[in-house]
């Protein structure tokens, strides 16, 4: 058995060396051809199987990769959306605070910043709650303003918070005048959340849509010149003693988050110059 194997090895070695020698002399092309006839079809079939298998495998891997990638991108998009919202919110807050600071610095009055912590928006009462109270020496009837104009007045002071009666509150009245014509009158809140300017008919003959109405400064509660709103429509009642004009409020009460409280004395001063671009 061992001898047979050795013999076989010898024969094989001889054949191989013969093949190699013939090839080196360029005479073994026939052997290569013959083997190629045998190997090429097998290789072709195997290559097809291999390609098909790899194709299926590759498709599966691609699908898996796409799924992973998709999940990752979705998570990233979600994160970026939240991030973008946060950035937008921060930028918006920054802008609001910057405007508030600019107003605070330009006002010739002592002020205190407050943050709105609650809103009451029913028709009966329209008020805001701010985070300044008795501890901050906030006084009742303190005027509350925003960078766009007058917000209202403090009507109730509590520990740590105060209630601001908004201009649109039905019980709110503010002495005012039209900037262009100096027509005096009273701005009143209405239950539907709008503002109206009540004036003597004989004084308001040439009132126009778009006219700016500001605080008059009379009465000692609000400094003069704080924007209240613009005339939106005029209700001329003919021979009646009073006429009315509907106003669009200068301040968007539903959107403000920070306000300034005019805490110092000097309510009689005119602060119109601090509200540039209005009027």
């Amino acid at each position: 058995m061992r001898l047979r194997a050795l013999g076989l090895l010898g024969v094989i070695a001889g054949v191989c060396l013969l093949l190699l020698t013939l090839q080196m002399r360029g005479r073994a092309a026939g052997a290569s051809e013959a083997l190629a006839v045998l190997t090429t079809p097998v290789q072709t079939v195997l290559a097809r199987i291999n390609r098909a298998t790899l194709g299926v495998w590759g498709t599966y891997r691609d699908w898996k990769n796409v799924r992973t990638e998709n999940r990752r991108l979705r998570d990233e998009a979600q994160r970026l959306r939240v991030e973008a919202l946060r950035v937008t919110e921060t930028a918006s807050e920054n802008d609001r605070l910057r405007r508030l600071l600019a107003l605070k610095q330009s006002l010739p009055l002592e002020t205190m910043a407050g943050e709105i912590i609650a809103r009451e928006w029913g028709g009966w009462v329209r008020s805001l709650t701010i985070n300044r109270g008795r501890g901050d020496s906030v006084g009742r009837l303190t005027a509350v303003i925003a960078p766009d104009g007058l917000v209202g007045r403090i009507v109730d002071v509590r520990t740590g918070s105060s209630i601001v009666q908004v201009l649109t509150d039905p019980a709110s009245t503010v002495g005012a005048h039209v900037v262009r014509t100096r027509t005096p009158g009273i701005v009143e809140g209405e239950p539907r959340g709008t503002l109206r300017f009540k004036y003597m008919a004989r004084d308001g003959g040439n009132l126009q849509i778009g006219d700016m109405v500001v605080t008059s400064g009379l009465g000692g509660l609000f400094p003069g010149g704080i924007p209240i709103g613009r005339v939106r429509s005029i209700d001329d009642r003919g021979a009646a003693l009073f006429s009315y004009a509907q106003l669009s409020p200068a301040v968007d009460f539903a959107r403000i988050d920070e306000v300034l409280l005019l805490t110092g004395s000097g309510a009689a001063r005119d602060v119109a110059a601090s509200f540039k671009g209005d009027g």
């Binding site: 013969l18 190699l20 190629a36 290789q43």
Partner: peptide, 12 residues
């Protein structure tokens, strides 16, 4: 044969 090498090398 399949790899195109010298016939007989790997065979041996």
């Amino acid at each position: 044969a399949a790899t195109g090498g010298l016939l007989g090398v790997q065979a041996l």
